[in-house]
C-alpha cells in the first residue's frame, strides 16, 4: 500500500489526509458530519414548510396565496448567500431580544441551529413549488372520493394525497436534497465549521490546496452519488403498483 502511494507521489497527500493529527482527515470528516447534519435538518424543515406552503397555495384563501407567492418569488430571486446573511442576523437578533425581554442575557446560537433555520427557509420556498406541482398531479377523483367518505382533511393528506403524490415529488425532492447538501458550503461564509471551511483551514495551514480541495470534492461527490442511488430506490418504491413509464413515453 505504502509502496503504491510512494510510486504515485501521493505519500505526502496521504500523510496530510491521515485521520489522526497531524493529518487533517479527521477534521474533514467532522466537517462532513456537520454538513450532513445541517443538510438533513434543513431538508426536513424545508419539507414541513413546503407541505404547509403547498396546501396554502392550493387550498388557502386569497391573502394566504398572495403572501406565499411573494415568499417563493423573493426567496428564489435573491442569492442564497444574501438570504443566509439576512436570516442569520434576523434570527439572532430576534432570539436575543426575546431572551433579553424574558430577563436572560445574550444567547449564543449554535451554528447547527442557525444553519438549519436559514437553509430550511430557503429550501421551504423550493419545496413549496415542488410539492404544489406534485399535489396538483394527483387525480382529483381520489381526493374527492376520500372527502366523500367523510375523511377529515389531515387524514386525507396522510392517507391519500401524500402517498399518491410521492412518485411525482421524488425527482424534485431529490434535486432539493442535492441543493441542500451543496448549500451547506455557503455557511462557511458565516463562519460555521462545515466541510468547506474545514477544508480551507486545513489547506491554508499546510499550503496543500489541491490535496484538500480535491479530497473535499471527492467527499461531496460521494454524498451526491450515494444519495442519487438512495433516491432512485425511493422513487422505485414510490412508484410501486403504477404502470411503468418506460415503453409508453418513447
Amino acid at each position: 500500500m505504502e509502496l503504491i502511494l510512494e510510486t504515485l507521489g501521493l505519500a505526502r497527500s496521504a500523510e496530510l489526509l491521515a485521520l489522526n493529527p497531524p493529518g487533517w482527515g479527521g477534521n474533514l470528516l467532522r466537517g462532513l458530519a456537520n454538513s450532513l447534519q445541517i443538510a438533513f435538518g434543513a431538508f426536513g424543515f424545508g419539507l414541513v414548510i413546503g407541505l404547509f406552503g403547498a396546501s396554502g397555495k392550493l387550498y388557502g384563501g386569497v391573502v394566504v396565496r398572495d403572501l406565499l407567492a411573494i415568499y417563493t418569488t423573493v426567496i428564489r430571486a435573491v442569492p442564497e448567500l444574501v438570504l443566509i446573511l439576512i436570516l442569520y442576523y434576523v434570527g439572532t437578533d430576534l432570539i436575543n431580544q426575546v431572551s433579553q425581554a424574558m430577563g436572560y442575557g445574550r444567547v449564543e446560537i449554535s451554528g447547527v441551529v442557525a444553519g438549519i433555520w436559514v437553509l430550511g427557509i430557503v429550501q421551504g420556498a423550493y419545496a413549496t413549488e415542488v410539492l404544489r406541482g406534485a399535489i396538483q398531479a394527483v387525480p382529483k377523483g381520489q381526493i374527492e372520493a376520500a372527502r366523500a367518505y367523510g375523511m377529515p382533511p389531515t387524514m386525507i393528506m396522510r392517507r391519500v394525497t401524500i402517498p399518491a403524490m410521492m412518485s411525482f415529488a421524488t425527482p424534485g425532492l431529490a434535486n432539493l436534497w442535492l441543493i441542500a447538501t451543496k448549500d451547506t458550503a455557503l455557511l462557511a461564509i458565516v463562519g460555521f465549521s462545515e466541510l468547506t471551511l474545514e477544508t480551507r483551514q486545513a489547506a491554508a495551514s499546510t499550503r496543500a490546496y489541491f490535496t484538500f480541495f480535491l479530497a473535499a470534492g471527492a467527499l461531496y461527490m460521494m454524498v451526491t452519488l450515494f444519495s442519487g442511488a438512495i433516491f432512485a430506490r425511493i422513487e422505485k418504491w414510490a412508484r410501486r403498483g403504477q404502470p411503468s413509464l418506460r415503453g409508453t413515453s418513447k
Partner: peptide, 23 residues
C-alpha cells in the same frame, strides 16, 4: 458535468483560486 453538478460552487472557486493561484 457530474463533477461540476456534484460539488459546491464555492469549493470549485476556492480550488481554482487558491489551488491554481498557488501553483
Amino acid at each position: 458535468c457530474t463533477i461540476i453538478r456534484g460539488t459546491p460552487l464555492l469549493l470549485q472557486i476556492w480550488l481554482l483560486y487558491y489551488g491554481l493561484g498557488s501553483l
